[in-house]
Design a protein around this nucleic acid. Structure first.
Length: 293
DNA sequence: TATATATGGATAA
DNA sequence: TATCCCTATATAA
């Protein structure tokens, strides 16, 4: 279940386990069979991620790149050859290397695309807090240019991948709580200072999420994760993503996400939910009140 | 067994 | 705003 951190961790893991290797490619489920034949036997040069999009580059494949978007329910499991498959549905795509096998199931997108198409996809994405060049090239300012002109509420803008790329429903709910922002504040009324604090927080949180393959927003867990990762800026973490720390290193705990009716751990009010922009928003009506700029 | 829901997003209306 | 796609899982029946 993917937000940006999942996709970046996945790209790093693919690079470690299959990068530079010749891979056997197939489509047991059948829907990708024709394209799989084109890739079969080629060398997987590298994988890269931007927002929630994954790109896998192969040698000698003209200018074609494999584009994957997991959507809401997709999964891309990279396992050791020796691991037994728990025989779920047949994967749409299987990449087999010397030591590892990657299996893709239920993706929203799995297609070979040419370079202009890839560029079009990238051009539509806002700055990605996990993409170092975006962070260094005033990603905060570029996103703010959109937000500060919008009458849409901030909870909706955070999910708009053309405003910023990689944030999904969990991070939006949680980061708004962390900064005590009323989710229904229009972008134009948010204020630059508050936005900068939101962006900076995402730049810190997403790399930790990627490093541990788990969304961490409770401050005690964030501190513990940062400690485990060691010194270094969030950017350094993002670039050196191990992604090896898979599995449940931390208890699954959130401030508001899927906690409707429970008491807020800060103020005691009951967490509320409301569908906003097609997704369920969770927030604390006590902590997250409208503020003056 | 059936149904609802899910960390997403495109498209139709 | 509603519908659709794709799969896994939890809960209800």
């Amino acid at each position: 279940m993917p937000e940006g951190h999942t996709i970046h961790a996945l790209a790093a893991r693919l690079n470690r386990t299959l990068g530079g290797e010749q891979v056997d490619v197939s489509s047991p489920q059948g829907r990708f069979a024709a394209d799989a034949t084109l890739i079969d036997g080629r060398t997987l040069d590298h994988a890269s991620a931007r927002g929630k999009h994954l790109f896998i580059h192969f040698d000698d494949l003209a200018d074609l790149t494999l584009h994957v978007h997991l959507g809401l329910i997709g999964s891309f499991h990279v396992k050791q050859r020796s691991e037994q498959g728990t025989a779920a549905s047949p994967p749409r795509l299987r990449l087999e290397g010397r030591s590892h096998i990657a299996e893709l199931r239920g993706p929203m997108i799995c297609a070979l695309i040419d370079e202009p198409s890839r560029q079009t996809i990238l051009d539509k994405l806002g700055p990605d807090p996990l993409h170092a060049p975006d962070v260094l090239a005033d990603g905060a300012g570029r996103a703010w240019a959109r937000i500060s002109r919008s009458r849409k509420v901030i909870a909706e803008l955070l999910l708009d991948q053309s405003v910023l790329a990689g944030v999904g429903n969990v991070y939006r709910c949680e980061v708004l709580f962390r900064h005590r922002i009323d989710p229904f504040t229009p972008g134009r009324e948010l204020g630059r200072r508050l936005w900068d604090s939101l962006w900076d927080d995402l730049v810190a949180l997403l790399p930790l999420g990627a490093a541990f393959s788990q969304i961490l927003t409770m401050q005690d867990q964030v501190d513990a994760a940062a400690e485990l990762v060691g010194d270094g800026s969030a950017l350094a973490i993002a670039e050196g993503l191990t992604g090896e720390r898979l599995g449940d290193h931390f208890e699954r705990r959130f401030h508001t996400y899927q906690r409707t009716g429970e008491r807020c751990d800060r103020c005691g009010r009951r967490i509320r939910e409301q569908v906003l922009g097609g997704r369920t928003l969770y927030w604390c009506p006590g902590c997250q009140r409208r503020r003056k700029r």
